[in-house]
Amino acid sequence: MVNSIDLIFKIAGVGILVAVLNAILKQAGKEEQGHIVTLAGLAIVFIWVIQLLAILFDQVKSVFKLF
């Protein structure tokens, strides 16, 4: 449980940093790179979250005996 709280803070941190980076890149006229950074942040967070989602699906399957 402690681990998943850590994960939430990590995701929040990535969100803040990506938001700031995006604002700076946009202000410097590099909007394409800003989009790339946003997309990269999204992908990284998804990689973390998908592992937990897989556990959730396994639990759902085991509850309803869907094996």
């Binding site: 941190g13 990535v14 940093l17 700031v20 980076l21 700076i24 890149l25 410097a28 590099k30």
Partner: peptide
């Protein structure tokens, strides 16, 4: 300004 911020924020992101 961009590169000043980009260096530190990139490092923070990698650490995180």
């Amino acid at each position: 300004k961009l590169w000043n911020y980009l260096g530190f924020l990139g490092g923070l992101l990698v650490v995180l």
